[in-house]
């Protein structure tokens, strides 16, 4: 590990070198097929500095994040292990953190996780022993103090670059930057935001973040999701809590023929990235192309972020 670095994370090196970072996302399959991961990996190769692997997102059972991370690591990626507190208590969380670090995972994204009520096993018992902020603090204590949550010492410290999420579009808006401040205080090194469609509101949030000086303490990666169709835009607007898709975006997609809506969605994503690049405090983008990984390269190229720096 290099001097002044917290981990062996490629993402950490990119950000600390002052590059505008690009991360991607890979959702594991609903089966035991490693090829599904490799296929997505192939589409993201060379386009991203690191790749998030979701942890049973929307509370739907999928291949575990850690196993999928390992498959991507074998392909040369620097995976970001997403971990939710919904399904694990503090014993399992700390155990998985040690295991991930031992397997050479360098990044973790600490999340609370979607409630299982909207998932595929609404009858499940949830855990929520700790919340995402407490989890950030736990990983930091393990890494920097060599201590478990109970205060006892551990042997080899997990060298992880610690991430957290924030949703500038959830309510109440007036405390969203304060919640970010809590995550920074807990020890987050980087933040990945919810998908941004309402750039105006995102900028208002960023202004508050910058006013608090948080952008100097944490790297902020702005979330981007290309919209495939008007239907997808409407679904996200109406069915996904905390998602803000303005009517202008829907109108713009409606304004082109159905078969061209995907192209328009990609164009919107590119324009959004270009606009966000100019926003003070934004250190990169996190592209979540949901089951549409083949478009990531086009978006990264279109935004002038290709090729990714060798570092």
């Amino acid at each position: 590990m290099k001097e002044g670095f917290k981990s062996n994370s490629r993402l950490e090196r990119i950000l600390k070198a002052g590059h505008f970072a690009v991360t991607g996302e890979c959702g594991p399959p609903r089966g035991a097929d490693p090829e599904a991961i490799r296929k997505k990996g192939e589409l993201l190769k060379g386009c991203v500095d690191a790749v998030n692997v979701t942890d049973c997102q929307t509370a739907v059972v999928r291949m575990s994040s850690l196993s999928s991370c390992l498959i991507l690591k074998e392909m040369g990626f620097d995976p970001i292990l997403q971990m939710v507190t919904r399904d694990r208590n503090r014993i399992a969380i700390q155990s998985d953190i040690l295991g991930a670090a031992a397997l050479g995972i360098n990044n973790i994204l600490c999340l609370t996780g979607d409630h299982q009520k909207a998932g595929d096993h609404p009858q499940a018992k949830n855990v929520f022993d700790i919340d995402s902020i407490q989890m950030v603090a736990a990983v930091k204590a393990m890494r920097d103090e060599g201590k478990f949550m109970n205060g006892e010492e551990l042997t080899v410290r997990p060298r992880l670059f610690i991430g957290a999420a924030e949703n500038p579009f959830a309510d109440p808006f007036e405390i969203r930057h304060l919640r970010l401040a809590k995550k920074v205080k807990a020890g987050a090194d980087f933040i990945q935001t919810q998908c941004i469609f309402n750039v105006k509101r995102f900028k208002e949030w960023m202004k508050r973040v910058v006013d608090m000086g948080l952008h100097e303490k944490v790297f902020i990666l702005a979330g981007i999701t290309p919209l495939k169709s008007v239907g997808m835009a409407r679904y996200m607007k109406n069915m996904v809590p905390g998602m803000d898709v303005p009517d202008e975006v829907i109108e713009r997609l409606k304004g082109v023929p159905k078969e061209k809506q995907g192209e328009e969605g990609v164009r919107i994503a590119i324009e959004t990235i270009q606009e966000l690049k100019e926003v003070e405090g934004v250190h990169g983008v996190h592209i979540m192309a949901i089951e549409w990984e083949e478009k990531v390269r086009e978006i990264v190229e279109g935004a002038g972020l290709f090729p990714r720096p060798e570092i």
Binding site: R86, H115, K117, A170, P172, P241, G242
Partner: peptide, 29 residues
Amino acid sequence: CSKSLLNGPCGGSSNGRCEIDPEVPCGWQ
């Protein structure tokens, strides 16, 4: 709070409502 968060609200809080059901008020709001 549907997730019993001690440091909420989560990203699913929308217009004062919880992500599990629009009829349920967000505890953290």
